[in-house]
């Protein structure tokens, strides 16, 4: 494999007023084009790890590099910009803004990032293509998002994460609100689209059942050296 796109070295983090670290990761490398599944139970520091990768929270110690950029060297504004330029993010639920249409929701990152706008080329067309590939019926494109099912909403969120070809897709338990059928379809489409634009996928979940679909699986407790209570 080539050089890692994400690299954590001796990263430690603890929340204010706590006397124990939540994270202590000596070494984590994530490589270009990987589908990485990070499994961890709730409270194991999954979200904290993602926040550190996304530059939302800074580690207390250690070094974190994303796409050759040392996040600690960036100002908070630069980290915000870096995030939207290179990262597509999918939440567990409620990814969409209720007052925007489907199409507008998908285009959001391009409104804030010149780079994503440039890579998406014709932003609206690209958004429509992505929605179509994610099996969203075209009659819904200009509708408000609240008429969608949860499964559809999550697929719209995938389209938004993918638009403008960000290098890394970060997904935080995106399937937890989906039933088994929807979950499988969601994953297939996510992989397909991520591969199409050669994006690296970092997927975090407690659901060990879906781990089988990923090219690489990490148990968070294996790389996190914090003594579990």
């Amino acid at each position: 494999m080539n050089t890692p796109v994400i690299q954590l070295r001796d990263v430690r983090f603890r929340y204010a007023k706590q006397n124990q670290d939540v994270l202590s990761i000596p070494d984590l490398r994530i490589y270009q084009g990987e589908h990485l599944f990070i499994q961890g139970n709730s409270g194991s520091g999954k979200t904290t790890l993602l926040n550190i990768i996304m530059g939302i929270t800074l580690p207390d110690a250690g070094n974190i590099q994303v796409l050759d950029q040392t996040l600690l060297q960036l100002s908070s504004k630069q980290r915000d910009q870096f995030r939207v330029d290179y990262l597509g993010i999918i939440f567990q639920q409620f990814n969409l803004l209720p007052y925007l249409s489907l199409l507008e929701n998908v285009q959001l990152p391009c409104w804030f990032s010149q780079q994503r706008r440039r890579l998406a080329d014709d932003v609206e067309k690209t958004a429509m293509r992505l929605l179509g590939e994610l099996q969203i019926p075209e009659i819904l494109f200009h509708k408000p998002v609240n008429i969608l099912s949860v499964g559809q909403q999550q697929r719209v969120a995938v389209a938004r994460a993918l638009i403008g070809q960000p290098n890394i897709i970060i997904a935080d338990e995106p399937t937890s609100a989906l039933d088994a059928d929807n979950r499988q379809r969601f994953l297939e489409l996510l992989f397909l689209e991520a591969d199409k634009q050669n994006s690296t996928l970092v997927f975090v979940s407690h659901d060990i059942y879906i781990a089988q679909y990923f090219s690489r699986v990490i148990e968070l407790s294996d790389i996190n050296l914090v003594a579990t209570v």
Binding site: V84, L97, S113
Partner: peptide, 14 residues
Amino acid sequence: RREMAVLRAVGAHA
């Protein structure tokens, strides 16, 4: 709160 989080995720600065 959710709205703000979504906006932050798609690149809105604080």
